[in-house]
Nucleic acid binder design. Structure first.
Lengths: 152, 152
DNA sequence: CTGCATGCAAATAGTTTGCATGACG
DNA sequence: CGTCATGCAAACTATTTGCATGCAG
């Protein structure tokens, strides 16, 4: 994907989020817009704290509670994907809010989002095998990125 | 799998854990043995609190710190699998400590461990695509179990 | 006996909640 | 202008840590 395409996609994501908000009569405050913009545009799967720090650049009085509340709202609207890790370090992807695989470096925490042959057939297989309805999933691989393999 | 086979497997799992401990000169206290036994035998993916409560039946003075410390130890030894959920409710599988898929009911929290066509080829694909080394993964499906589909 | 494990309490981290004040629509 | 969002602080939950005492090897 070229840089210009990516920039366009970020705008589109933001527009989608705003549409969802408007559709449900939620208010658009400056702080909210800032948080949505960060989430729509970031490809680094930021933590709450990282989002918090960045928002504070523009709105220094923003509280972390607002960040949490906004994220909770977006989760309800399915406009953000939550990546939960066992050590309690959650990260968020508002750029691609649908379930998709991740490859995570256990040393430097860098995360990639590689394209992959669909996992949907696996969902189908699970459904047939267990009788569960499947509404979402997660598929994450843990290892070491090329740089961290070298420096270890 | 028949009940007797399952019972045998649980014993074997416990033996494996004990061997790992012995191999590294860790001590075997009654509390530890109780925790290992629960983890080796449980198919319900218990939480720390559930393990804690059960251990206390036999050893009422056991502290929750001991449960955490024992689990941390087993994690290091790769003898327990940690299932981390975004809401901060971690569950543990000592019966099958290797990565494997789960199907989780979002209402009653029941978890199944269905057999599945190997995910290892996906790991390989990820490795080739990203240059990461892949040492573990997780694959979890979320939905509603048959009972909860009815009662909703 | 010697050192690692336990148990207790305090500390920490991430997140949530209550409520008075502020501002979007 | 009414209502929902914000910001602050306090509350909460899960987990970790420090340290004196206990017990396995």
């Amino acid at each position: 994907m070229k840089g210009t395409e990516r920039a366009k996609w970020k705008e589109e994501r933001l527009a989608q989020m705003l549409a969802k908000l408007k559709g449900r009569d939620f208010r658009l405050t400056p702080q909210r817009l800032a948080i949505l913009t960060i989430l729509a545009g970031s490809e680094e799967h930021p933590t709450v704290d990282e989002i918090y720090t960045e928002v504070r650049n523009k709105f220094p009085t923003t509280s972390i509670a607002t960040v949490y509340k906004t994220i909770a709202l977006l989760k309800e609207l399915n406009e953000v994907l939550e990546l939960g890790f066992p050590d309690g370090s959650n990260r968020y992807d508002g750029n691609r809010p649908y379930p998709h695989p991740h490859v995570i470096c256990m040393k430097c925490r860098k995360i990639l989002d590689p394209e992959i042959a669909s996992v949907d057939q696996l969902s189908e297989e699970m459904k047939n095998k267990t009788g569960y309805t499947i509404s979402s999933h997660r598929l994450d691989f843990f290892g070491l990125c090329p740089e961290c393999q070298h420096n270890s």
